[in-house]
Design a protein around this nucleic acid. Structure first.
Length: 182
DNA sequence: TCTCATGAGTCTTATATAAATTCCGTAT
DNA sequence: ATACGGAATTTATATAAGACTCATGAGA
């Protein structure tokens, strides 16, 4: 009932890098390094696949994955590629961690966002339709942020695992059901 | 027929959300 | 000098506005 749209993870290679040099050493379908635009080196191991942003410090971010499996596989492939070029040791432990998961879900029915903002409690809601069509809900006891749209579509973001996102969504569903009954 | 204008329809961008990262500018 | 905020990236979501293309009509 909820599906992952984007998973983001980060790790640390533990070595300082000359990212311009790394870019030229790699033979990838996509690389981009333009310090005047951004100081991170962008890499894609697969065309159209997840994006890896590598920094001078050796820290890196992988984004654009639609499953955790793809995220970890991308991380493994990235480390393998780097170790083959002797940029890092094959045994490098990067402490790769999932940082954020963006999920989508759908409520059974359309919702009136003005009514819902009152039902959820104005203190935890931001809803300014002229600025953005979605209602922004930050549940007090769930570490995630939900975007609720009038047609019932939901975006859950800010959670570091799917269970947390799912709990937050279930909580929202319960609140919506309660408000419908009143 | 050719050119210009206007209309319609499509496409892009901005708006907002989270997280990691580093660097640059500003403010104290 | 230190501290802090904004910048770019990804992704779903939905609105509006502006940019843009193509067509058709009218006037010359």
């Amino acid at each position: 009932m909820i599906s992952i749209a984007n998973a983001v993870g980060s790790g640390d290679l533990g070595v300082e890098l000359d990212v311009a040099e790394v870019e030229s050493d790699l033979d990838l379908p996509y690389t981009e390094y333009d310090p005047s635009n951004y100081h991170g080196l962008y890499l894609r191991l697969v065309e159209g696949g997840p994006l890896i942003t590598v920094y001078r410090s050796g820290k890196y971010i992988i984004s654009g994955c639609s499953t955790f499996e793809q995220l970890y596989e991308t991380n493994d492939a990235f480390l393998t590629t780097l170790s083959e070029l002797d940029i890092v040791d094959a045994e490098t432990e990067t402490g790769f961690t999932v940082q954020n998961v963006v999920c989508t879900a759908q409520l059974d029915d359309p919702v009136d966002l003005n009514t819902l903002s009152i039902a959820l409690g104005l203190e935890s809601v931001e809803y300014e339709p002229e600025q953005f069509p979605g209602l922004i809900y930050r549940p007090a006891d769930h570490p995630a942020v939900l975007l609720v749209f009038a047609n019932g579509k939901i975006v859950i973001t800010g959670a570091s695992d799917v269970d947390t996102a799912e709990d937050a969504f279930k909580h929202l569903q319960k609140q919506v059901t309660t408000y419908l009954e009143q």
